[in-house]
Design a protein around this nucleic acid. Structure first.
Lengths: 227, 227
DNA sequence: ATGTCAATTATTGGATACATAACACCTTCG
DNA sequence: CGAAGGTGTTATGTATCCAATAATTGACAT
């Protein structure tokens, strides 16, 4: 891809507690660890061939990130996500993204603008190929570029953190090819508002864009829900 | 105060790690622990009459909250806050508050609306008395009432978390009596927009309100900065 | 037979001991 | 005299052990 972005998955080496945290994050994201599942410290320690100490630190970090709920002296469980809460999270992401794109519209440098345009153009062949994984990767870059263009490092961090947190819970990628072209059309509309320097318009379109993705996913979840 | 809100400062009992975390949070907020100060685990353990285990857990939690920076095998330091970063945090809070009040305007129940009006009226004698602590307490309730009125639990949590995180760094309360009446006037304007059902207007006024508080504080910090 | 209370058990919270990596200082060689 | 390498010290990462608490189960009384 040749654009300075790295996958940053420094797994399987370094701190054991970090390895455990990453592994658990993946398993929660993949759904291997179902929501509400009890997380026995000794059991996890055995599974990872470590002692309880790093397991506990991993659980604390996951709890801080919201993926795990800890109750004092009653152990941890994978955070239980109600459909309402998931929708709340999506709405929050949508609103934050809307804020970001508004600020970015007013503050982005010409370089950042051309970078964004370049990215957007780059997505056209991806949509045509229907490569969902590639589009997912592009999409992340597109949105993160906007975060950074706010020139507000803290806000960008928050946006990324919340987005990742939500990502961990969407166990099923969107496999609907149609969604890709709709997504790109919505990006197009956002790009146009940015080009016109209309931050408010860009903001409204971004909010709609995110909520479209949310309802689309929500419908999918509803159709495949277990009970 | 007779309004169901509690101070929730359940300190000095319960989990030791929580006590340590709260204590460190307070000390960082008060400036007793200067930014960049090294946090020796054994030293802290001795100071709190505990072992390193709960100290480590406290440090992890603080790191997750952004108050402490941890580097692998190189210990932790109190997060170094540049003025730019503080302004970024203020702006982020302002934007999130703006989102909250817009959603709240469209979604709040009559009960929540009357609760907010009641709170606002209650602040008049506080401003006249010039009791800064009392106003600070009221102010928190005012804003948190708005968070909850969004009927988006996740967003409310995020707003409170970020607000607390910022609070930890404003080591000096605003001691300017004049600011109180200005703050209340701004609340008044926000209330009016809410009453008219104009979420966008309420949003813009809230943003201005928060940024006013920010610049006011920033000026104060600038005037009293150490070096 | 059912409800309540107490004892036991299992699991988490905390303490201590040990391993390992990083930093500093000293020695030695160029 | 300066730089580089090694060694020693200090602090973090991990393991194991002990204590406290909550859940569960069984017994006894109503």
């Amino acid at each position: 891809m040749a654009n300075g972005f790295e996958t940053e998955d420094d797994d399987d080496r370094g701190l054991i507690s970090d390895r455990i945290r990453n592994a658990l994050t993946d398993e929660i994201a993949a759904g291997t660890l179902a929501a509400g599942a009890a997380l026995d410290e000794q059991q996890l320690a055995d599974r990872f061939g470590a002692s309880r100490t790093p397991v506990r630190e991993a659980l604390r970090q996951l709890a801080a990130g919201g993926l795990v709920e800890l109750r004092a002296r009653r152990g941890g469980v994978v955070a239980r996500m109600t459909p309402e809460r998931i929708m709340d999270m999506f709405e929050t992401v949508a609103e934050i993204e809307a804020v970001c794109v508004r600020l970015a519209t007013y503050r982005m440098t010409p370089l950042e603008r051309s970078r964004l345009i370049e990215l957007h153009e780059f997505s056209r062949p991806i949509v045509e190929s229907g490569d969902v994984d590639a589009y997912d990767s592009f999409n992340r870059q597109f949105h993160e570029t906007i975060y950074h263009a706010t020139h507000n490092g803290f806000l960008a961090e928050q946006a990324i953190a919340i987005r990742n947190r939500l990502n961990a819970f969407r166990r099923t990628q969107l496999r609907q090819g149609e969604r890709l072209s709709r997504s790109r059309d919505e990006h197009e509309a956002i790009m146009q508002a940015i080009a016109e320097g209309d931050g408010e318009m860009a903001s409204r379109r971004m909010r709609a864009h995110m909520l479209n993705a949310a309802t689309s996913l929500s419908r999918f979840i509803e159709a495949n829900k277990p009970a």
